[in-house]
């Protein structure tokens, strides 16, 4: 009962305060137009008549994430990476991925029904995730979104079967770490790819450059044979997808196996 009264007080407060605020609608209420910076992004995200500054991707958010503000995203990915590394550092010696005793696929995990349903839906979900990831420069979605959708599969397999089910099939944290590092190195090298191309042909090019810019004419192609790939965006999405899917899997494997054997520290 106490909770209900507290809640009622809070909700009525909100409703009341809003009445007051409506009289003084200020900067924080969305208006009819967007800001000029947003207008720039919307105007140039794909614009054949503005070739000096365009990304050639109809998806403005992915364009901002990987091109206009690509540096942010590189380091955002590194934050996730460093958090995983910090987690691995904390769990070092606390978990082991070798089987202790016997592991029976029948008795561990949830019931057969759930297992079978998971088995059937897994390829479908991976296809959906890959579609979200690989169409990131065309429709909402992108590397992180696709990778996270794909990562639901290892997570659900871990929960529905057992962590050892994956390990018995070779999905260990070490392998996933390699996969993740490969994805991240891919992102890193794509981010300086244009620079390196420029270096090779003796032209100036920026780090994170995608399309040619005034004063830096090196750039990656926007489409291949009519299929839009938006230069670096496609590669970024691909590598990010791999890295994120592997990263989520590592996180769950370590967390679930922590405290389960291992040398116990030091």
């Amino acid at each position: 009962m106490r909770r209900i009264t507290e809640l009622a007080v809070i909700i009525s407060l909100i409703l009341g305060v809003s009445v007051l605020l409506v009289l003084a609608a200020s900067i924080l209420i969305p208006g009819v137009e967007v800001r000029q910076l947003a207008f720039f992004y919307l105007y140039t995200t794909i614009n054949p008549w503005f070739q000096n500054y365009t990304v050639n991707s109809p998806e403005a958010v992915t364009a901002i994430v990987w091109d206009y503000r690509g540096l942010d995203t590189l380091f955002e990915t590194s934050v996730f990476y460093l958090a995983l590394i910090a987690g691995l550092a904390l769990a070092r010696g606390l978990f082991s991925e070798t089987l202790q005793g016997s592991f029976n696929e029948k008795t561990s995990g949830l019931s057969t029904i759930v297992k079978t349903v998971t088995r059937v839906t897994a390829p479908m979900i991976i296809a959906v995730g890959a579609s979200i990831g690989l169409h990131g420069h065309l429709t909402p979605g992108g590397g992180f979104q696709g990778g996270a959708t794909i990562a639901v599969i290892p997570l659900v397999f871990i929960v529905v079967y057992s962590a050892f089910f994956l390990i018995a099939r070779g999905v260990t944290s070490n392998k996933m770490l390699v996969l993740r590092s490969i994805g991240l190195l891919g992102i890193g090298f794509i981010s300086i790819a244009t620079f390196l191309i420029g270096l090779a042909i003796g032209r100036f090019a920026y780090v994170f450059q995608n399309m040619p810019k005034p004063g830096a004419i090196v750039g990656l192609p926007a489409d291949i044979n009519g299929a839009l790939i938006s230069g670096t965006l496609w590669f970024f999405n691909l590598f990010e997808m791999i890295a994120v899917a592997a990263g989520f899997t590592i996180a769950f494997i370590i967390l679930l196996l922590a405290g389960r054997g291992g040398s116990g520290g030091r």
């Binding site: 380091f75 770490l177 590092s181 994170f208």
Partner: peptide, 22 residues
């Protein structure tokens, strides 16, 4: 160019270190 390359190259080193472990 070094200014632009500095942080990306540093973080690429960080990405590569676990590979060195393996």
């Amino acid at each position: 160019n070094l200014l632009g390359l500095l942080t990306p190259v540093l973080i690429i080193h960080a990405f590569a270190i676990p590979i060195a472990k393996i």
